[in-house]
């Protein structure tokens, strides 16, 4: 167990190093140098050279890379080229919006997916099963941004036309400052994100549940005369949830990096929007900071899943 965790930790550090180095290298390969993007198209050669010098971009590549590694390792993400503010505080400002977005969507898709999954497994081929199959299919096929656009069209534009102003997408508002506004802003992004993923969970729970329900010990439980509800929820669901929870951890980690589209469509100012605008502006330190953070989420989520697995399923032994 201990050796396993150490090995996974080392692999996680390797991933972080490779991801950030890849992005670092890529940004240096850019045919339009960063200083030109920051100076703007009409800046004089002298200005560009000055910016280049001030940002330390005239140093040799390996020196820049080394100082990036050294600073990152000591927890210093540097300063934004564009706004001059600390990358860490820029991220800290934007992180709540993204975390709330992912958290709310995760609750929706986890609860929704498991409920529909269990119901369609116990009443396989019933009406609910068929209806959920159609939704699963659409959820698996539709591009995230299209889902967001359609929800925005129906619940904002159309509802607005009909005089219903329930959902008001826009900039993130803290739930502590204005809970109503917070919900008005967040519900549509939550739905957009959850709808895509709930499909996978419904399928996964349904498949896993059907496997478990055909096991011998479920027959034993029924033979003991337990109520069907107890058999399904106590004996069945618990065993069926292991693969679902594994997937949950992985998705949750990966999602932080892919909220870019949802944030853009709904105008939420989270880290997705931050990194997108930084990429467009050539703000290297911010791009690297967000990349590291999102990779860190993936790595930590995978680690938690691996360890949690052995607690959930006593048959799994880590070595």
């Amino acid at each position: 167990m201990f050796r396993f965790i150490i090995r996974r930790l080392l692999f996680g550090i390797l991933v972080l190093w490779l991801v950030s180095s890849t992005v670092f290298g890529l940004l240096h390969l850019s045919p339009t140098p960063v200083e030109k993007m920051i100076a703007g198209p009409r800046a004089s050669a002298a200005t560009v050279a000055l910016i280049r010098h001030n940002l330390g971009l005239d140093r040799p590549f390996l020196i820049q890379y080394w100082s990036f590694l050294k600073n990152t390792f000591t927890g210093d993400l540097g300063y934004s080229y564009v706004t001059q503010s600390k990358v860490a505080s820029l991220i800290a400002d934007r992180l709540p919006a993204t975390l709330w977005l992912v958290f709310g969507a995760a609750v929706l898709w986890f609860v929704g997916g498991i409920t529909t999954g269990v119901l369609s497994a116990t009443k396989a081929r019933g009406l609910l099963d068929r209806v959920s199959t159609v939704f699963v299919l659409i959820g698996l096929s539709i591009p995230p941004f299209l889902m967001a656009l359609l929800l925005l069209f129906l619940f904002f534009t159309k509802f607005g036309d009909w005089g219903i102003h329930l959902f008001q997408p826009g900039q993130y508002v803290s739930p502590l400052a204005d809970p109503t506004m917070f919900l008005q802003r967040m519900i549509l992004p939550w739905l957009a994100l959850a709808f895509l993923i709930v499909a996978t969970y419904t399928r996964l729970t349904r498949g896993s549940m059907m496997d478990v329900l055909s096991e011998d010990y479920i027959r034993t439980a029924r033979a003991k005369g337990l109520s069907e509800r107890r058999v399904v929820y106590r004996h069945g669901l618990r065993a069926a949830l292991t693969p679902v929870i594994t997937q949950f951890g992985v998705d949750l980690g990966a999602l932080i990096g892919s909220t870019i589209v949802t944030e853009k469509v709904f105008g939420l100012q989270g880290i997705g929007q931050l990194v997108y605008s930084s990429i467009v502006q050539g703000d290297t330190p911010v791009i690297l900071g967000v990349t590291l953070l999102t990779a860190l989420f993936v790595v930590v989520a995978n680690l938690i899943v691996d360890i949690g697995y052995s607690f959930l399923d006593p048959r799994v032994r880590l070595d």
Partner: peptide
């Protein structure tokens, strides 16, 4: 490693860089 890349982010970086 490739599977644990934040792929959309890195894809945008690649596409913008080039």
């Amino acid at each position: 490693v490739v599977l644990s890349f934040p792929y959309l982010l890195v894809a945008i970086v690649i596409a913008t860089t080039f």
